[in-house]
Structures are given as structure tokens and as C-alpha cells.
Design a protein around this nucleic acid. Structure first.
Lengths: 339, 339
DNA sequence: TTGTAGGCGTTATCAC
DNA sequence: GTGATAACGCCTACAA
């Protein structure tokens, strides 16, 4: 095909120096408007396209932001991604997205890859089993903005975006108590992850506040994989004190619970009241519709996008802020209330 | 902090030439094993990291694959993406993902951006309203592999991955007919998109085969946005001949239909039988559970990934193949059957 | 088997 | 306001 037009080609045909062409295209102030017009016109005419490879090398920037999420095929994560993409794209950045598949090993590899690709910043939501954070130090050392979302570590150097999982857990549980539940079971994921631990703590605090007996039996830690739903149902059926309330840290898993519980003749909400988490689209479509905590994923994505952009443009000194907490909201539906 | 180690630094400390270092690191055959070992050892010791910017410029490759999807926050799309990501990542490529937000204009901008970023290949699922395909010609001209998924255009030059939407539509409809439906309504999206048009054609063919009356009234074209569900319900309620079967081109929209129809006292499946499309997780969680067409999104992603990799490595001459069709499957559940 | 040197296309620092 | 010229770090003929 016709060879790619470079700055040199433009310079030659315009009888100016390559430097002038470069500056014109970048709208540098020291170039006269006349020359700029000439250059830009000719560039369009000949179909000039910047060579990012060269420009990246020269500027040591890629206009690219890396993202590592546990899984792409999760409603919550893809909603966050949609928010991020919208914002950073408008600011002229591209997104390199990778998934850790809930494995710390892959998370390590991914962060190395992204670091080596020269991303200008990186956004991370931790894998299920990530326990050390050494793989993020290169970014910190090189002052590459590093922002954590939702599943975050305890690192003082970097910004984290979360909701108040503790409070959300508290509110969800208190709601169940107010609906008359006495034996509430919390079903959550790996307690190493802030999101599940905090929700549990909130749950516990609510029980305590209302003077309900608390024993560790009321915590059921699972991987929240629907394929393992049977164990959960068995656990509930065989529980010594009949369970009458369920706080499940994921809507999708809660939906499966409800479905299976109905199969074994539990009435929801009469026998067991259920509260989920995330306000997944599923929550309003199942029967009974699911009471849940609305988690503003899209807004979190947008905020994450804005935060990186601000850091990259040096607009605001985000160092001041360490953690931003978004507002959540209890949405009461049929699964926890009797008309 | 400590400056980045380059090939020159290694060369200096090892007292060899930069060229030798470069070749050692790339495992070039002309270098002795001894030297290679030495170089690699020292590289690890000093923490050498390749500078992608320089290497990209030199090789004119980015090891990067671009993706444009209509929306990130869709279960189907994120499932496809998960499959793509897994495969291409294992092959050493990164994914630059962008969303067109169902707008041709943004799709154009995105493809320009990706082209300019120098992606080695591009995967596309078309926006809702894309009608011309000029924005993809740069890729074709420069022989950059271009693969379409799911929502594809009619371009002979490039590979497309689809399922047989016609046949799927036929089977879905025939199933409804076999269940005794006489007045089946098809609810789908923009007929400009192959997926909706083909499903419709299949639907029509099934009606014809079984000698059912067909009138254009039975096609309801909508944007499949749940916010506009009311119009659809009104349409169904006021239909001159009572509708007893619904073939909806999206599970999510079908789920909303069922929910709203139940609200206005339709019994599903007794009054109206429903078949959806995609086998979205939602389909088995709602009541009644939704009969649907299983659409192997993850497999499609994997296949797409493998196809690009093959084209990039020149393994197989994919030019021979123009369209690959994956196997779909009718999953019969409660929404279309009476026990 | 290894070294040398030019090129990849852009940007930035000096001069003028 | 514009022109030289030197990085940027890697790759790869070609030479030795």
C-alpha cells in the first residue's frame, strides 16, 4: 500500500523543518498561525497519521491505562469497566484490560505485563486470594498512579475507592432484625477480602446492638460459586436453630439460594427472609424480588476514571485523599418483607 | 528512583555489544548458549526490563489487540471478552478494549484510535446503528487482521464469527408451535443487525412451514431497553388476536416481559409461552425459568482469540474461511411448557 | 559467534 | 518563529 506519511514527508513537501511540523501538529505556541494552518492542511491532504510508537518512545508516555479485574464476565465488574472506559476515553486514553481470574499468580503476571507495556496508570480490583502486594511496588516506585477499586488492600500509598461495606452490612442486617429475624446467617466470600470482612463486621455489630445471641456458626464462608449451592442449602436445612434470615454478600448467589430453598419447600420471605448485595439486574427480576444493597458500580467506575485522569494531569493532589467512599443504599423488596 | 536498565547498561557491564545483548534476550540462534546465560543472568540481576516503546517502534508491532464492543456492561459481551482475554493473554498479547455505546460515531472514533495506536489486530462487534463500514478499511488496507463477532457486516474480506441465528430463530419458534401456540409475536432489535434479522427470518420460516398465518404485525422491533417495556406490554394486551407465544431476542428483555405480564395477570406459560435468547444466567433464576437458546459466548471469545493469534502468527491461512458458525442449542425450561 | 552502525518517527533543546 | 541536532532504546543488516 501507499507508504505511511511521516513528519519528514510533510517537512519536505512544505519546505520546512521536521521540528516545525511536529510543533505545528502539537499546537505549540511558538509557531505562527499561518504555518500551523499550512502544516495541518497538508497533513490532512496527505493523510498523515501520527506514529504512536515513535511518539511513545520519545515522550515515554503511552496514553494508556491498565486495568486488572478478577473476572470480566461479572455484571458488577463490567459495569465498573463501562464507567471507567467512558471517562478515560473522553480524556484521550485507552484502556488495557486484563483479568486475574481470581488468582494472585495471574494478577502478578498481569501487573508485570502492564508495567512493561508502559501504562501511564493502573486500576486494580484484587483477586480472591491475593495476600501480598509486592507486585504493585514497581508502580509505586516509578510514581505511576495506582488506584484500587472495591476489593482493596491496606496500602497507605495509594488511593482506594470503596463503599462503606461495614455500614452496608450493618444496615442489611438491622433491616432483617427489624423484620423479626432472630437467627440470621451471613454468607460471604473470602474473609481476607475487605468487602466480605467488612460486611461481616457490620452484620456482627448489628446483632450485637440488638442484643441477639451471636455465635461463629452464623458465618458461612464460601466461594460464592453457584455450583456449590448444595452445601449451603444442606447447611441451612441442618442448622440446629432454624435460620430465619439470610444476608448474602452477592445477589447472584442469593438468587440461587432463594431458588434452591424454594425447591426444598422453604417459603421466602415467610420462613426465611433474604437480603443480597450489589443490586444486580437479577435482583428485581426473580420472585420474590430481592432486597439488596445498591452498589453504584458505574459511578465508581466514573469516579475511578476521573481520579486517574486528575492524577495524570496533575490537576488535583489526590495524595491528600487516601480512600474515597461512595454512597450505598438499602433497597427493600419482597424477599425480606411480608405484606 | 534508580534509573531504568537498558541494553546498553547490560552491554557495558558485560563487556559485550548491545547487539549481542539484544540477541541474547531474544534467544537468537546465532548466540552461544554461554553468552546467553551470562546476559540473561545479569539482566535478572540488574532487573532489566524491556522498553516496549522502543521495541514497538523498532518492530512496528505492539503485541496488542484492539476490541470494540457495543457495551461492556452486558453479560453476553463480557462473557465473550473473558474468552478472548484468556486466549490472547496466554499468547502474549494485551487487549485494548473500547465500547461504542451502540453509536456508529463512537465506533468510528474508536477504530481510528485503535488504528493509530498500532494494534496488531482488531475484533469488532457492531454498534446498534452502524450502517457503513468505511472506518474499517484502514485495517484491511494495511492487512491488519479484522474479525467480526456476533454482530457482523457483509464484508467478504474479513472473518466473521457467528451462530446460525436463522436456524436458532427457527427452532425457537417451532418449539413454541409444537407447544400449541398459534399467535406468536417476535420481539427483536434493529433489523439492520444480522442477529435480529436472521432470527426473524427463522421465525418467519417456522411459521410458514407449519402453515400458520403470518402478518407483519407479529414483528415488534424495539431497542430492547427495559425502560420501554410498557409499550411492549400495551402492544401485547391490545393485540387484536390474543398472543399466546413470545419469541424475544434477548433473555434480559424476555425476563422483564415475563415479570410485567405476570403483573397484569397473564399466566406464563399457560396464557403466553415465552422463549428468550442467549442463555443469560438470569434465564434459569426467574420464575418460571426461561426457555432459551444457548449462545456459547465464552467459546466464541476463545475461538475469536485463537483465530486472531493464528492470523498473527501466520499459522493458518484463515483467508480460506470467511464465516465460522458456532453450535447453538435450544434449552427448554418452564416458560414454554406445561407439565 | 559477535561487533558496528544506521534506522524506526517523534520530541525537545539549543541556537539563530 | 524556525531550523539543526541529539536523544528515546531497541532491532537488524552487514561486516568482521
Amino acid at each position: 500500500m501507499n507508504k505511511r506519511i511521516t513528519i519528514y514527508d510533510l517537512a519536505k513537501t512544505l519546505k520546512v523543518s521536521p521540528g516545525t511540523v511536529s510543533r505545528s501538529l502539537n499546537n505549540h505556541p511558538s509557531i505562527s498561525d499561518k504555518t500551523k494552518q499550512r502544516v495541518i492542511a497538508k497533513a490532512n491532504e496527505l493523510g498523515y497519521k501520527i506514529n504512536k510508537f515513535a511518539s511513545n518512545l520519545s515522550s515515554q508516555k503511552s496514553n494508556t491505562i491498565g486495568v486488572i479485574v478478577p473476572k470480566l464476565n461479572s455484571n458488577f465488574m463490567s459495569t465498573i469497566l463501562a464507567g471507567i472506559e467512558k471517562v478515560v476515553n473522553e480524556a484521550g486514553y485507552s484502556l488495557i484490560i486484563s483479568q486475574s481470574l481470581e488468582s494472585m499468580e495471574k494478577e502478578k503476571i498481569n501487573s508485570m505485563t502492564l508495567f512493561n507495556s508502559g501504562v501511564d496508570a493502573i486500576l486494580v480490583s484484587l483477586a480472591y486470594d491475593t495476600t501480598d502486594y509486592e507486585h504493585f511496588t514497581p508502580f509505586i516506585k516509578h510514581k505511576i498512579p495506582l488506584i484500587f477499586l472495591d476489593r482493596v488492600p491496606n496500602l497507605p500509598e495509594c488511593l482506594t475507592l470503596i463503599i462503606d461495606n461495614y455500614l452496608a452490612g450493618f444496615e442489611a442486617t438491622e433491616h432483617l432484625i427489624e423484620q423479626g429475624c432472630k437467627n440470621i446467617l451471613y454468607i460471604g466470600g473470602n474473609q481476607n477480602r475487605n468487602v466480605y470482612l467488612e460486611r461481616f463486621k457490620g452484620y456482627r455489630a448489628a446483632l450485637k446492638k440488638h442484643g441477639l445471641d451471636y455465635s461463629f456458626d452464623e458465618l458461612l464462608e464460601t466461594d460464592l460459586d453457584p455450583r456449590n449451592i448444595d452445601e449451603v442449602i444442606t447447611y441451612i436445612k441442618n442448622h440446629p436453630t432454624p435460620i430465619d434470615g439470610l444476608f448474602v454478600a452477592s445477589d447472584s448467589f442469593a438468587a440461587h439460594c432463594i431458588k434452591e430453598l424454594k425447591k426444598v419447600s422453604f417459603k421466602i420471605p415467610e420462613d426465611i427472609k433474604v437480603v443480597g448485595f450489589n443490586n444486580d439486574p437479577i435482583s428485581e427480576l426473580i420472585s420474590p424480588s430481592l432486597t439488596t444493597i445498591n452498589y453504584p458500580g458505574y459511578e465508581m467506575g466514573v469516579l475511578a476514571g476521573q481520579s486517574v485522569i486528575n492524577q495524570l494531569k496533575g490537576n488535583i493532589d489526590m495524595q491528600a485523599t487516601n480512600a474515597i467512599s461512595l454512597r450505598h443504599e438499602l433497597i427493600i423488596r419482597e424477599s425480606s418483607t411480608i405484606k
